[in-house]
Design a protein around this nucleic acid. Structure first.
Length: 526
RNA sequence: GGCCCCGUAGCUCAACUGGCAGAGCAGGCGACUCUUAAUCGUCUGGUUCUCGGUUCGAAUCCGAGCGGGGUCACCA
């Protein structure tokens, strides 16, 4: 039961059971009265559904045609369908690997046991069944049940979902759970009735495993840095604020890993990475969740061009591990992750799509005028900095054209306070972002390692954000102290893992790739 | 946060310009020895998200709220 908003205004009350639930609760009472435990402690499964079918088919091949091999098994799973027909009942159970049919027959079980199954077992219950494998007249590998046992009674019926297998083998799901909110709030029910949802999260796990494997093989050290931080930094985002009672100090949930990982380079750890959760106290949308999974790595003695090469290798490797190939269909478009990816200087890309060469406008005012003159229908913020205006051009004109994996490189300095300037070009930093299907996938740069320059940038940022207190960033003195000991030149990288999971599972919304996305509290009574 | 759309049985959805809230699945009872969305008969199931208003009469119209979806803004 969720607590009501406003600090537990809602008191927990006894759940109100539906008529369907009451019937099942009565069965639980009845079972206990007969000395049958509806939630026994142990199960005795010998095979999964997939294992027994494989074993049975292998045995069939050995015995040759006509002969039925004797293959015994005890299976366990959740009852998903039951078709009683007089002195026979067919049922399907589902386990972690798939479904298998059970055949209950009066011949083996006797009338009492058959009745017991038909009367006391419901869809959604977990059952254990022991028997021998056989084929039905239609040829389906089926367990002929000699003995069975309840493993766990289901009180609340699962959302109705029936699968119809057409003659061509395609499966049509009828009346499946589709309500987006219910699916997200009750992911357990969603997972229980929608096998494709389970598949999404298997792919997500495969993705994270692939990223780890790739970086491990490249000699990167996986590390863990604080989630609970006395200061936040490394990105421009509003933090979640909390408080440590004993230490009597305000703490923040991290908004990025960057400043801690780069401290490790000062400590002579040359290649480090972290995969973990970031928290940003901002809007929720189809591509934003307040907590999301981030991958960052830092690589001493490398620059952003080397990071670029490593990135395309890493992401294409992950694509192959997760989807089986370098080409992935996302929202109807085929994306080709085969390296090398297209490289496009950001200034050039903006010139080609907006017909504005921002290098010709070295201050915000002149650039603003140029944009309005060329594109009267667009409305950039008149008070925006030059960097923000360039960002505006990027998202308005260039981004939508970046469907195939593309690296955009060389960014304005004033929107990149942690990146190193391009030699001989003080307005530009060595930074790139990877784009796919029109959205930003990753962000990387040659990291700034000059402590005095870094201090100057922090102070500039502080000034820029003075008006907007919430985005104004605290100056991290300890980070500057670390940098003053000496930080090797290095390239750094950050990527939203959920975004990549969306691409590899062809999902439009980040919520579809998060098991428990952030949702507003349920409040049943006002 | 702005704008648009949505909220009806456990699930998926109907209900015309306001006129007795329905169906399929799930569930109860009965029949059925190879079913697989099993089938057949029969029955049950509702605070139409909440509160208020208009009206002889509201699922439907109006207002407020709650929740969700979309979109824009925000997100170096």
């Amino acid at each position: 039961m969720g607590e009501g908003r406003g600090g537990g205004r809602k008191v927990r009350t006894m759940p109100e059971y539906t008529s369907l639930e009451k019937i099942r609760l009565e069965k639980i009472e009845e079972l206990r009265a007969e000395g049958i435990e509806p939630y026994p402690t142990r199960a005795e499964r010998t095979h999964t559904s997939a294992q027994i079918i494989a074993e049975y088919e292998a045995a069939e091949r050995q015995t040759g045609d006509g002969e039925t091999p004797e293959v015994k098994a005890t299976l366990a799973g959740r009852i998903r369908a039951s078709r009683p027909m007089g002195k026979l009942t067919f049922a399907h159970i589902e386990d972690g690997e798939g479904k298998i049919q059970l055949f209950f027959r009066v011949n083996e079980l006797g009338q009492d046991q058959l009745n017991f199954f038909n009367e006391m077992f419901d869809l959604g219950d977990f059952i254990q069944a022991t028997g021998v494998m056989m084929r039905t007249r239609s040829g389906e590998a089926t367990l002929l049940v000699h003995d069975f046992k309840l493993l766990a009674k289901s009180v609340t019926p699962l959302p109705a979902a029936k699968d119809e297998t057409l003659e061509d083998g395609t499966v049509v799901r009828h009346a499946a759970l589709e309500d987006q909110e219910l699916r997200a709030r009750q992911r357990y029910a969603d997972l229980a009735v929608n096998p494709d949802v389970r598949e999404i999260f298997r792919k997500r796990a495969a993705l994270i495993k692939a990223l780890r494997k790739f970086l491990d093989d490249q000699g990167f050290l996986e590390v863990e840095t604080p989630i609970l931080q006395p200061l936040y930094g490394g990105a421009a985002a509003k933090p979640f604020v909390t408080y440590h009672n004993e230490l009597e100090q305000q703490m923040y949930l991290r908004i990025s890993f960057e400043l801690y990982l780069k401290r490790l380079l000062v400590g002579n750890l040359e290649k480090v990475y972290e995969i973990g959760r970031d928290f940003r106290n901002e809007g929720v949308s189809y591509k934003h969740n307040p907590e999301f999974t981030q991958l960052e790595f830092y690589w001493a003695y490398a620059d952003y061009l080397q990071v670029m090469e490593l990135t395309e290798q890493m992401v294409s490797f992950a694509a192959k591990e997760v989807t089986g190939g370098y080409k992935v269909t996302y929202q109807g478009q085929e994306l080709d992750f085969t390296p090398p990816w297209r490289r496009l200087e950001m200034r050039q890309g903006i010139l080609e799509t907006s017909w504005i060469n921002f290098a010709e406008y070295t201050d915000a005012e002149s650039l603003f005028k140029a944009i309005v003159a060329k594109h009267p229908e667009k409305t950039p913020d008149p008070h925006a900095t030059r960097g923000k205006l360039i960002d505006f051009l990027l998202s308005e004109f260039l981004e939508p054209t970046l469907i195939q994996p593309t690296f955009l490189y060389d960014y304005p300095r004033d929107i990149s306070p942690l990146a190193k300037s391009k030699p001989g070009d003080p307005l530009t930093v060595e930074r790139f972002e990877g784009y796919v299907s029109g959205f930003e996938l990753c962000n990387a740069f040659t990291e700034l390692n000059d402590p005095l320059d870094q201090e100057q940038r922090f102070l500039e940022m502080g000034r820029d954000y003075e008006a907007d207190d919430e985005e104004r960033h605290p100056l991290d003195e300890d980070y500057l102290r670390a940098m003053r000991y000496g930080m090797p030149p290095n390239g750094g990288f950050g990527m939203g893992v959920d975004r990549l999971a969306m691409v590899f599972t062809d999902k439009h919304s980040i919520r579809d790739v998060l098991l428990f996305p952030a949702l507003r509290n349920e409040l049943k009574e006002g």
